[in-house]
Design a protein around this nucleic acid. Sequence first.
DNA 1: GACTGGCACTCGTTACAGTCGAGTGCCAGG
DNA 2: CCTGGCACTCGACTGTAACGAGTGCCAGTC
Lengths: 340, 340
Amino acid sequence: MGLDDRKLAVLRAIVEDYVATQEPVGSKALVERHQLGVSPATVRNDMAVLEEEGYIRQPHTSAGRVPTDRGYRLFVDRLSRVKPLSPAERRAIERFLVGAVDLDDVVHRTVRLLAQLTRQVAVVQYPSLARSSVRHLELVPISTTRLMLVMIADTGRVEQRLVELPAPVPADDVTDLRRLVNEKLVGSRLSETPPLVQALVEECTPLLRPAMTTLATVLLETLVERHEERLALAGTANLTRGGLLDFQGSLRPILEALEEEVVILKLIGEAESSTTRVLIGDENEIDNLRAASVVSTGYGPGATVLGGLGVLGPTRMDYPGTIATVRAVARYVGELLAQN
Amino acid sequence: MGLDDRKLAVLRAIVEDYVATQEPVGSKALVERHQLGVSPATVRNDMAVLEEEGYIRQPHTSAGRVPTDRGYRLFVDRLSRVKPLSPAERRAIERFLVGAVDLDDVVHRTVRLLAQLTRQVAVVQYPSLARSSVRHLELVPISTTRLMLVMIADTGRVEQRLVELPAPVPADDVTDLRRLVNEKLVGSRLSETPPLVQALVEECTPLLRPAMTTLATVLLETLVERHEERLALAGTANLTRGGLLDFQGSLRPILEALEEEVVILKLIGEAESSTTRVLIGDENEIDNLRAASVVSTGYGPGATVLGGLGVLGPTRMDYPGTIATVRAVARYVGELLAQN
DNA sequence: GACTGGCACTCGTTACAGTCGAGTGCCAGG
DNA sequence: CCTGGCACTCGACTGTAACGAGTGCCAGTC
């Protein structure tokens, strides 16, 4: 039941035309626009087979064909090659990312750039804390019983947290605490800190013990448990392109899903290696996104993955172009962070 | 030309019914649902006057009447009184905001709460830097020629910025720099820092002068010029309620405006006093938001205003309820920040 | 003078019938 | 295996008619 080359060519043509025109494509139009070298009737036969196999479907009898999720999948896997970016796009990327002053700035610029280039909704995860290491810990006394804990990660990410001490702690002791936590934790990956923090408490002088214990709790909470992965979003207005035909008429579920940061993080944050992932319609595990496709990849300096980024759009999207753009942007951001 | 009491009552009834049903309201339905004590014909005459004066209009001949922006304005100014919140709502607010661990958390919880209670798009500005004062400045050496500057404001806001030094600076000098900037700047409002920073450079020992100069530049940039006002957004999915009838059919312009943080900040950040502002449709200066209304207010501990918050929705919204909720949330957040 | 009941009128909505045409499936022939 | 031809389907569009909510106006009443 294998599909011969011509049937694949027909499928490719259908996907390309449908993506371009947003209208069901018929056999006649197909042979006119592509050099298939056969007649419409032949194409119709091929279409019948493709439909039987579930790669395309008819919205109604006597309408043209539309790719199914499965059809897009086949297209992405076997029928398309990644388009190289145009020089203009490359320049746009560089121009956009140059001059970012801090991490926030980098992330914001990236997400806007991605939205603009793909004309879709873009998402960028901040460099994951779990994959960062500690560059410096700072303790700032707010009052005698309150400290502000500031953690600076090697990615430039800064996290802060208020620590309520069980009893007043003099300034000198704060200095000691600061020295201790820095000596022990600086340089280690956040995912590896729990035992180190534990050790800190145990090795600590009795005098500092109570304060260190609370501090340790907050540290563990902030750095490990409360995996506070942040993300930035842009381009939601692009959802309205294609006038409600995409997304089966309602943006509601999409917008809802986009507000659930946790959900989105799961989606793009799973990238362990830096391979590009494409999730098409149904393949998506989140119900609200069954009408959408997601193209995502990991980014980071060299081969390390610090976080994920990607775009979300209608299943009817320009996959080759989108994939190329997502990859390119991820690579540039990776390089940028490497200079850090 | 004055509108007598009954005409005002008719207008109020029209606004209330239209907001509730989202359908043009006719004279018959009006007398049935409200105790106006007159016949439909009389109401029709009143309506004719109201229409002449521009408070209501007919979508088409032989349809009911719909309030105009001007009608809503009159309603808000003179015909409605702020609804007290239900105990359930008060409890919701408290429950939602209790347990926030840091400023980010407070802001995020607030914006979600506001979106949920009003069922509209909510926006919360982070406590404005310009109105905060410096609690502590930290300098973390990254390399011999790079420092991470971390500024902690009294509102709990933390800003960081990379400083590229013109020449290597030994650790001891960094300590000196840290001491100097803290001595001079801690406690002062950010808007008042420029002369202080200037003085710092001038009074500085020749040895530290070059480093201090660069540091000063970054300080001024970060703290003053680059008024980096941040904001949080939630509830965009609520725009889709009312099925595209609101916002004259297209969410596009609204979503676009919401992505322009600068624009939104202008909108809600202008609150100098903590009075509630209501902008209805056309009154809005941003073209993209001509089909929407904005209810905003300032918040902060006591009478000081640290930032703004508000909601955005269709002109056809429950103004009394929304205003009450926005005010209540702002008050709670203010109290929360006062405990800080 | 203000209100009311009655009535003709408007116009959007809905239903239904008819036409058009894109696109199909199938079949007989090359 | 491919092709041209043909009958068929069914959505999109058009035109007509009936319906009804809602109005404006007017003459009559308190």
